[in-house]
């Protein structure tokens, strides 16, 4: 493994909501180039953990590091240019804008976006970004819908668009919040393939997911949360077969 093995690190993070501990002293290390799954029953703190990593929730204690840099106090929008990009559980697209515009906005931190972007003749950089956006539409099978409003797309394609938009930021770490939720069996297969593909390109992925099948197929490493605490962690084959997970999900 390279010296930068730990790309994203969560150390001793605690978060309380009105006295309830949503996260209690969580440690988590995401290795570069791996897919890291976070699982657990409803209310285990998975989404809160993702919100803490992406900056939407500020932890009461603990720190978050990206490639060795402390990002605990950075707002979400400042984490994006550093390479930390997320999707949302209930999809957040710019519904009134076109599919292409959604992807272009994904490139925001990589493009000239100030007053200088008003200059009517595109710079070589801008031309390259536009070409890249078109290519991304092909890749995510969205090209036929290029000029449609995002809100008009069916659910599955909206999820795909959200991932395309996230990828347009060229993330180092992609945080996915329940990417398989509401997907058909075919959609889940396609998702698993896509995640394998992205991992093959060297992308680091953190995925919060309910679907154990997806987790088992894509993850290199799994962390199990319950009541805001880390229950167990390790390779999916070991963890998912263990008693702790069954206990957490089914009770005893």
């Amino acid at each position: 493994m390279s010296p930068l093995a730990e790309l994203l690190r969560v150390t001793a993070v605690t978060k309380r909501f009105q006295g309830v501990e949503a996260l209690a002293d969580i440690d988590l290390a995401v290795q570069e180039g791996t897919v890291h799954g976070v699982v657990g029953p409803n209310g285990a703190g998975k989404t809160t953990l993702l919100n803490v990593m992406s900056g939407y929730v500020r932890p009461d204690a603990g720190r978050i590091e990206l490639a060795g840099r402390d990002i605990t106090r950075l707002t979400p929008q400042l984490r994006v240019p550093l390479g930390l990009v997320r999707t949302f559980q209930n999809i957040r697209l710019y519904g009134g804008l076109t599919v292409l515009e959604n992807v272009l906005l994904g490139q925001h931190t990589r493009a000239r976006t100030g007053l200088r972007s008003l200059w009517p003749f595109p710079t070589p950089q801008e031309r390259a970004l536009r070409a890249e956006a078109e290519a991304a539409l092909e890749l995510f099978e969205l090209a036929p819908y290029r000029s449609r409003r995002a809100a008009e797309l069916p659910y599955g394609l909206q999820k795909q668009l959200e991932m395309a938009r996230a990828m347009a930021a060229r993330p180092r770490v992609l945080l996915l919040d329940e990417p398989a939720a509401g997907m058909t069996t075919d959609g889940r297969h396609a998702l698993v393939e896509r995640l394998h593909e992205l991992r093959g390109q060297g992308l680091t992925i953190v995925v919060v997911e309910h679907d154990m099948d997806v987790i088992a197929k894509v993850c290199d490493h799994v962390t199990v949360l319950n009541f805001g605490r880390t229950l167990t962690e390790g390779p999916p084959a070991v963890v998912l077969a263990g008693d702790e997970v069954r206990t957490a999900y089914l009770g005893t």
Binding site: P76, Q77, L78, P81, F88, R92, Y94, L105, H108, A166
Partner: peptide, 13 residues
Amino acid sequence: EDERAATASGLRI
């Protein structure tokens, strides 16, 4: 359209 999505795209709103 959506401020939360905008922060996720890195827009300094």
